[in-house]
Simulated scan of single mutants.
Amino acid sequence: MSDYNKIVVGTDGSKSSLLAVERAAKMAAAFDATLIIGCAYYENKEEASKTLRQDSVTILGDDKAKANLSAGREHAEKFGVKSIETAVRPGTPVQALMAIVNEFGADLLVVGNRGINSLTGRLLGSVPADVARQSDCDVMIVHTVN
């Protein structure tokens, strides 16, 4: 097993995404890694309406995204992580997560499984499946929803 030094996890503020944050935080604590919690947002309703899939919470504006990051950080701190950073990026969840992974040089990306088994996810793709295909680092898909 390789060591992970930088672990990225995405959150949209939902209960299921906080389960992914929890798993990533536990791994970051175990590896003494930096945890980077990321959140995507749409700059306006027009941008949000361009996305074909609705497998994640639509976040308009970076204020809501920053609030989600704050909640994610607070949750992650409960699991003994020594180093936590946050990153907010405009765009789809996939675009934002890939930008954060590349910018921070992450070794591991942790995402929840929301959307992966839905009809829309099967037809159009899902955030977990799309990041797994696009990522240059390891991807862990956490079982967060049935």
Rank of each mutant, 00 (worst) to 15 (best):
D12Q: 11
G13I: 11
G13Y: 14
G13L: 10
S14N: 09
S14E: 03
S16I: 06
S16R: 07
S17T: 00
S17A: 05
L18K: 10
L19S: 08
L19A: 14
L19Q: 15
A20V: 04
V21S: 00
E22F: 04
E22Q: 12
R23T: 07
R23A: 13
R23L: 06
A24R: 00
A25F: 01
A25Y: 01
A25D: 00
K26F: 03
K26S: 03
K26L: 08
M27S: 09
A28I: 02
A28C: 03
F31M: 14
F31A: 05
F31T: 06
F31W: 15
D32R: 15
A33L: 08
T34I: 09
L35C: 07
I36H: 01
I37C: 00
G38N: 02
G38F: 05
C39L: 07
C39I: 05
C39E: 04
A40V: 10
Y41N: 10
Y41D: 06
Y42V: 13
E43P: 07
E43L: 11
N44K: 10
K45H: 11
K45R: 09
K45E: 13
E47G: 05
E47Y: 08
E47L: 10
E47D: 10
A48T: 12
A48F: 11
S49E: 14
K50A: 12
K50T: 14
K50R: 14
T51S: 10
T51R: 12
T51K: 11
L52R: 14
R53S: 15
R53G: 15
R53D: 14
R53N: 14
Q54C: 07
Q54A: 12
D55R: 04
S56F: 12
S56C: 09
S56G: 10
V57N: 07
T58S: 05
T58F: 07
T58W: 03
T58K: 08
T58R: 03
T58I: 14
L60K: 06
L60R: 01
G61K: 08
D62V: 08
D62L: 07
D62F: 15
D62H: 13
D63N: 12
D63T: 10
K64R: 12
A65L: 01
A65V: 00
K66Q: 08
A67F: 04
N68A: 09
L69G: 09
L69R: 11
L69T: 06
S70E: 15
S70N: 14
S70I: 04
A71E: 04
A71S: 11
G72H: 08
R73S: 10
